[in-house]
Every structure is written in structure tokens, then in C-alpha cells.
Amino acid sequence: MSARDAAPTPATGAAGIEFRDVTVRGDDGRVILDSLTMSVPRGEIVALLGPSGAGKTTALRAVAGFQTPSAGQVLLGGRDVTRVAPRDRGIGMVVQSYALFPHMSVAQNVGYGLRSRAVGRRERSERIRDALAMVGMESFADRQPGSLSGGQQQRVAIARALAPRPDVLLLDEPLSALDAQLRSGMLAELARLHRELPDVTMLYVTHGQEEALALADRIAVMADARLVEYGASESLYRDPEYAFTAAFLGAANLLDGEAVDAGTVRVHGVSGPIRTVERLVTGSPARLAVRPHRVRLLEGTDRATNEVVATVTDLQWRGATHQVACVVGPRTFTAELLELVFPPTVGSTVRLGFEPQDVVVVRDDHDPVDGRDRSDRVSSGTEAHRASRQSAAAVAP
């Protein structure tokens, strides 16, 4: 499906985490992770993003050793750990519930994993101090978890995961229990830790697109126990290959039509043609995606290359923007507009415009991908751009 095999070897050595055709079945025999093949380069953060039941946490647990694959291999730093005990994998893990021991002090919680690894008292004290300093909690070493805020408890949980100095850090929706302000602050902290720990590979499970885009070097979009699409965060957001990715990783307006020539699509229910920079086969069906923030409200003599006439069905003021929900032909259509002085009213007819470079041609299906990574893909606006997805796979190492 995409540009490169997902098992490239980074210049710095073996991949941090590698899934090789990993399948996991539940106790009832149901497939809960289906043939996952994906490589996480050492020192990067990769977000596993998708709705509930997508297989994200199952993939994380397979890396941790808490879920045994029915088939396939899990490798850490090039070493097959599929059957290795969790404590021998060199990983740290942070979960959304913090999982701190309430009867232990902060320092004792952070040092718990070090005690189980028989780290000497002096070195243990140094590592506890270093880990707490890394998350800004060194002055809380003697406090009990119950006296801390949710954000502080999560910092302690991260310090505990970092104290053994793992090669791989697994984060399972670590911010979901925090309010919006704390979540924003913790995202900044995790980004800082990523900069300060360039050799630590992080796998981050989330269903929040903003977290994934803010933090991850690459994103793996998952659905129905399968990997839909994988690549550099900006690449997936700006130029998704699949409609599911476009709609889940940031909102997207989807329009269906047929190519009337190489760069023009006649969309069902839209009077005028829609132009795109991407070259299409004349007569072929085409599904188009347009991000709401790329849409403009056209007033008076304003013009755009692509224009649609829409009926407003809802209007929401969100402070800096107005979100305008409309009906265009048989589909809903959303525009995210900078705060309007005179917003349209519900039931009114408006003209909306966007440019060819704002249109992405996407595919409707999302079959399991075969592990290729699109992180090096650059939008070209040419027919060769789509063809390269197949040809690159044939020559990838």
C-alpha cells in the first residue's frame, strides 16, 4: 500500500520495536490483533491511534509481554522477545490509572522496579533522585500518592517507568484521566522527555488525535484489529491514503464522484466540477477529502477554484472559530471558519470555496497493510505519486 517496508533498519542500529506479522487471539478465539507488521525506529515516538477495539492496547501488551501472540514475532532492539518474560525485556510502562502503591511513598514507588531487579541501595537512591528530577517531582519524594494531584501522580508513574533506564517506554493512554489543562501540560512534559532521552523508543496508545499529532514522530492508524495506515505524522495528516485516516486523524469532508478528466471530478449532488492537483484516470470513481479548516465562506464577489452551494444545518461558536455544519448534495459538509462578525444563520444558503491543493484523493477501503511505512512520501500532485506507492514497495529493502 505504501512507500517502504516497515522493517527498515535505522542508521543508529536495529529498530527499537518491530512487529512481524503479529496476530493475537482472545480466550474465545476471536482475533484481537490481526497480522500486525510494523517497525518503530529506535529513539522515536510512535502513536497507536484508533477507536475502541482497534487493537492498540493489545499491540502494546504484546510488546510488554502481557499478551502472547498466536502467531508472529515481537522484536526489541533486533532481539526476538516473543517468549521472553516481561521483566527481562528492558521496558518501562505507564498506564492511565497510574497504578501507584498507596502505602508507599513517592520514592518507594519509583524505586519498586529497581528493588525487584536487585539494584544496590546507593545506585537505587541515585536513580530515584534522577528519575524524580526528570519529571520535576524531586521535592515530593517523601509524600504519599494520595496527597498528590492526578497530574503529579502521573509524573510519579512516569518516573517509576524511567528509573530502570529502559530502552523502550510504553504508554497506554496515560493522559486520559487528566483534565484538558493538565493533559496539555503533560504533553509538553512528555515532549521534553523525548528530547532529553533520544535513545528511548516510545510506543504511545491513544484515541486522541491531538495527542498523537502533538507528540508522535509517526502515527499508526488502526481499526478493527488491523493497521490501516502508518507513516510520519505530518504526512498522514496532510496526505492520507485512506478515507478512514482522513476522517479519524482530523476531521474531513468526504465527497464522492467520477473523474471527468485527469484533474477534474464531477461530485454527486454538486453543480460544478471539483478540481484537484492529483491526476486521475478519466471515468474512474473518486473519493475526495477536504479538511474543514481549508474551506472558506465566499461572500459577494469572492471566488474560489472549487465552489459548492450548501445549506447551513448547524452553527457553533468555539471562541476563535465558528464551526458551520452544512448539507452539500447528499452529504454533510463542515467548515471551520475564523470567528465571523456576521455568521450565517441555520437554514440559509451559503457558498463555500477551497482550492485544488486542499483536495486529497483517498481510497475507501482499509485492508490490513503489509507493514510498509510512508514516512518518506511527499505529495507531488502527479499521477506518478500514486503509482510510486506500488513501485516503491517492489524495490524497498
Rank of each mutant, 00 (worst) to 15 (best):
P174H: 01
V346F: 13
T23V: 05
H322T: 10
H103G: 12
L213Y: 00
A216P: 04
V267H: 01
R294H: 13
S52F: 08
V119D: 09
E383Q: 12
Q144R: 15
R296T: 02
D239S: 09
Q323L: 15
E18C: 04
A212V: 00
E123S: 11
R218W: 04
I219A: 04
V63K: 08
G26N: 11
G113K: 06
T9H: 03
L100W: 14
E211F: 08
E210V: 15
P166A: 10
D179G: 11
P198Q: 07
I128S: 01
D27R: 14
T82P: 03
V119L: 10
G55Q: 08
R25N: 12
D34M: 13
H293T: 04
R226I: 12
A159T: 02
F244P: 00
E339W: 11
G136W: 01
V74Q: 03
A159I: 07
V221W: 00
A392S: 15
G77M: 06
G113T: 06
P166E: 11
M202W: 02
T37C: 05
R122D: 15
A392E: 13
L48A: 05
V281A: 14
L48F: 13
I274F: 04
Q323Y: 06
Q323R: 15
V265L: 00
R4E: 14
A325W: 14
R331S: 11
D28A: 12
G381C: 11
R374A: 11
V46K: 03
R87F: 07
D314V: 08
L175H: 12
G26D: 09
V369P: 00
S149I: 10
L49T: 01
G53I: 07
T206I: 07
R303Y: 10
V106W: 01
R115A: 14
R363C: 03
L148P: 02
D224E: 15
A384R: 14
Q209L: 05
A262R: 13
A310F: 00
R331D: 13
V84E: 00
T305C: 02
D358E: 12
A262K: 09
G53K: 03
D365S: 12
R143I: 00
G53A: 01
D358W: 02
G77Y: 08
R195C: 07
W317I: 11
D172R: 02
I219W: 07
V350M: 12
L254V: 09
G16S: 09
E355P: 03
L178A: 14
V119N: 01
L215C: 03
F19M: 03
P10Q: 10
A243N: 06
S70K: 02
H366I: 12
